[in-house]
Amino acid sequence: MENKQHTVQLIVFQLGDKEYGVPVADVLSIEKIEHITRVPGTEKYIKGVINLRGVILPIVDLRTRFNLPEHPYSQHTRIIITKKGEKEVGLIVDTANDVIDVATSQLEPPPEVVGTESFDYIKAVAKMNQQILILIDLAKVLNIEENVEI
């Protein structure tokens, strides 16, 4: 889809020392961390639900999802509220502080092996200066069953 456009706007967030991106179009808002109510009997990476202005919203911890070591939440911790289809989910990230334009020509398909992460939820990577930006595939991250065009 991005191939047809010249640039794509991404929200950049960090987990550990890696930078990730998620398309602005999929993001509703970015919130500070607040009390999360655990929901028993769900996947480990589902931290629970929060009350976002009167709406109950499930929260996924991306660190747990990406098998990264747990990290206590700090004042920089953010919840990125995303929307995929009818499903609204919040993602806990270490920080989220940038919106950038990436030319679609800069995006490359994911390499066969990227570090130790299981890489099926990586949609593309982009080389930005010295850093590599990982564009995540929301549907895969959230385990939403649907036919995703790659």
């Binding site: 009390h35 929901v39 769900t42 629970g48 639900v49 109950i56 499930p58």
Partner: peptide, 27 residues
């Protein structure tokens, strides 16, 4: 009564959630 949304479906023994006076969510 509020639903847990479309993402969390079929949570065992939980029919929904509600928001308490302090803003927290109770199942």
């Amino acid at each position: 009564l509020k639903s847990l949304g479309d993402y969390l479906t079929n949570v065992f023994a939980i029919s929904g959630a509600t928001i308490l006076g302090d803003g927290q969510v109770a199942l």
